[in-house]
Design a protein around this nucleic acid. Structure first.
Lengths: 228, 228
DNA sequence: TGAATAGTGTCTCTAAGACACTATAAA
DNA sequence: TTTATAGTGTCTTAGAGACACTATTCA
């Protein structure tokens, strides 16, 4: 009973829908709940916002605690506050959308042992209303890679257009024509630029030119990438 | 009245960015604050969420208290919760976007005397961080009328394509070619449909065919209306 | 050589926009 | 008649997509 207020009491949490790409499949970061509420259930990472902590900072902190990463594209997704959505009381959660470059394993954080990347398709039930939050996150992600540079946030510093195309194909769930994709990406003069390097993978055909992102994740593209 | 909690205490409010069209200009609903905090300042309508009240219901209630209207297109916009954004304490506000058909005057509600429609352009400073919330609302509105039926929410049951075009021109701030607009709207087979009626206004040229909306405000259009 | 991937050429279809033109009303 | 608005025709340009083709690597 540490806190009192003249107004109705709400708790405010942040949840993070963090995506990455593993082996060509869209993955989401989930934890196995270890505390009393929903013990053993799968859930999105998240936690209470500190008394003097901005919402975005809380989301960054939660993600860092789970993955050890804090240089990440992160933006607010939506807020979920129905009475009864959390058995602990009136909990309003501000969900955030994050995109991480591929090889980020959940590492030594406070709750890291519980965290794991799981494919979005085929994921079992989630605690609370997290299934809906995840669905909203996927929808937002699919929309945003069409008109922002967000897809590059899945990749490292340098990448091939084949790797970039794999991001779109995984998120949209459809194959894209390699030739037309190439042209679509190059139409935006400030989406990606060739570095001059090439990536040669054994037994994988002609080496591909390497590119780097010219915009950060949430910047708008001047020419959208059409979703089929 | 004192509430207690084991977790950090937040107050949760809803604010409403309500738009309408008056005399061809985009207008937003604002109030003059009468209580102690920010007395006399212009602000967006809003208020505290009840202990057992869903967020969207709270936004509907606030809007009804200001305008007497509750049949309205309303959706969540974003959540603003920086520490220090409200001098009363840690207040997290969930902002909502509303669109009302033109002739809805603020009427007999609890705070109705203070509420008024004001043109978005040329509006003075707003209390708290409401200027940013309004800017985000305008941006969201401008984006959404391009790919949803939201523009029809500004109009009555029946409307001409000239009136619909005026909505786009007011929100986007650009003139649109009447002929091309006509075709763009008709390309979507399920955006609007002619009612068979005509509207004849004295001294205003050839009477225009009347249309009605085939979709509600937030439904997606199959063919977008291109923003110039 | 063939298999695999990168990248280009080219064709068709549709949309966006400019703009001329016709249609129908009031003053 | 002029003025104003509704609505159509038509031309140009650009993008989306299908798909053939060339380029460059490894086995």
């Amino acid at each position: 009973m540490a806190y009192t207020s003249d107004y109705p009491i709400f708790s405010v949490t942040v949840d993070v829908v963090a995506f990455t790409l593993v082996a060509g499949a869209l993955q989401v970061l989930v934890i196995e709940r270890g505390d009393d509420t929903g013990r053993g259930e799968t859930a999105l990472p998240g936690g209470f916002v500190g008394p003097d902590e901005p919402l975005l900072a809380a989301a960054v902190r939660e993600l860092r605690e789970e993955t050890g990463v804090d240089d990440v594209v992160l933006e607010q997704l939506a807020t979920y506050g129905d009475p009864g959505r959390d058995p602990r009381g009136r909990v309003v959660t501000v969900a955030h959308l994050a995109v991480l470059p591929h090889p980020v394993e959940p590492t030594a954080g406070t709750d890291a042992a519980d965290a794991a990347w799981r494919p979005v398709s085929g994921l079992g039930p989630l605690a609370f209303d997290h299934a809906r939050i995840l669905a909203d996150g996927v929808e937002r992600l699919a929309a945003k890679i069409g008109y922002t540079a967000l897809a590059t946030a899945f990749l490292g510093e340098e990448f091939t257009l084949g790797e970039l195309r794999a991001v779109y194909e995984a998120v949209w769930g459809v194959p894209l024509d390699p030739g037309n994709f190439q042209r679509a990406v190059r139409r935006s003069t400030d989406f990606v630029a060739p570095t001059g390097g090439r990536r040669d993978l054994p037994g994988r055909g002609r080496p591909a030119a390497l590119f780097r992102a010219l915009k950060s994740g949430t910047d708008l593209l001047d020419h959208p990438i059409a979703r089929p």
